[in-house]
């Protein structure tokens, strides 16, 4: 698709992109620290990825190849809309293949294929403050971050164990970055948490409504919080993928009829398709 001449490259004006880039650079300099930025109104509702879109717009160059995933899938409404948005306003090439993309905007997943140096992963973040549901006052949570008072985060995990017998938090699982800032990794499943640390790609987090940007530079140490006697465990459904047979990927449970029938399929559609193209077949593949 040809870029529209009515928009500046990637929709936002250059001054706005400069402002966002400054926030991104600051975020990269202080891994895990939430940098406030002047979030703009975007032509989409809050909660649909306004933060991620602004970060993507600020980092995209005409030579980039752009991929968008929503819960791992390339073909859902949110992913298709944002991909089309940048095709139209930036004219960048797009792809669904993780390995070919240079900028990947994601909602709630990290791709299964390991990321490489030179790639940028942009997360859409609904609520950037990991302490928010425990401490409603922003002034207080800021102080807790600056003074490294993170005991409260463990209170949340304690509550989980006391109520469920194990740490039941299965997504947006809090992590500690470089032994300093506690960070909300956006609502990715905790299965993806180990991929956050020591990652060769740059990871950027944008929260549009909450007006915060934070970042993980490549090869950052990221540790999931836990208790000594209840260690962190990256969990997934205990099944192979019904379509490609993969046993190492994060799975979605799909209800297939009204008689209790269900199947488990890879949430990362690109990973699943690549495996099927390579000849792997799961038990439910027709």
């Amino acid at each position: 698709m040809t870029p529209s001449s009515e928009y500046n490259f990637a929709y936002l004006d250059e001054q706005t992109k400069r402002m966002i880039r400054r926030a991104i650079l600051k975020g990269l300099a202080i891994p895990g620290y939430q940098v406030p930025f002047a979030s703009r109104e975007m032509p989409m509702p809050y909660g649909w990825g306004t933060g991620g879109v602004q970060v993507s717009a600020a980092v995209l160059t005409p030579d980039d190849r752009f991929k968008v995933i929503d819960q791992g899938a390339d073909d859902t409404t949110n992913a298709v809309s944002i991909r089309t948005f940048f095709e139209r306003t930036a004219g960048v090439a797009t792809t669904t293949a993780t390995t070919e993309a240079t900028v990947i905007q994601t909602r709630h997943r990290i791709p299964e294929v390991p990321l490489t140096e030179g790639q940028i992963l942009v997360y859409q973040v609904p609520i950037p403050e990991p302490l928010r549901f425990l401490e409603p006052r922003e002034s207080e949570t800021r102080k807790m971050h600056s003074l490294e008072e993170y005991g409260l985060m463990h209170v949340k995990l304690y509550e989980d164990i006391s109520r469920h017998g194990h740490i039941a938090t299965s997504y947006a699982y809090p992590v500690k970055v470089e032994a300093r800032y506690v960070m909300d990794p956006s609502p990715i499943p905790k299965f993806d948490n180990p991929k956050l640390g020591d990652c060769p790609a740059i990871q950027l987090f944008g929260a549009g409504r909450e007006q915060r940007i934070y970042a993980l530079p490549p090869y950052t140490q990221v540790v999931s919080l836990d208790f000594e006697d209840h260690p962190f465990e990256a969990s997934k459904a205990d099944h192979p993928c019904g379509l490609c047979g993969a046993e190492d990927s994060y799975l979605d449970e799909v209800i297939v009829d009204d008689a209790g029938g269900r199947m488990f399929v890879c949430s990362d559609t690109d990973y699943c398709e690549a495996r099927r193209a390579a000849g792997h077949i799961g038990k439910d593949a027709a």
Partner: peptide
């Protein structure tokens, strides 16, 4: 903390000073 169980309320200060063993 009214939204946190009695045990969590008592444990908060322990966790704030570094206790990391649930039991």
């Amino acid at each position: 903390r009214m939204g946190v169980s009695a045990g969590g309320n008592v444990g908060e200060r322990l966790m704030a000073v570094g206790a990391r063993h649930y039991g």
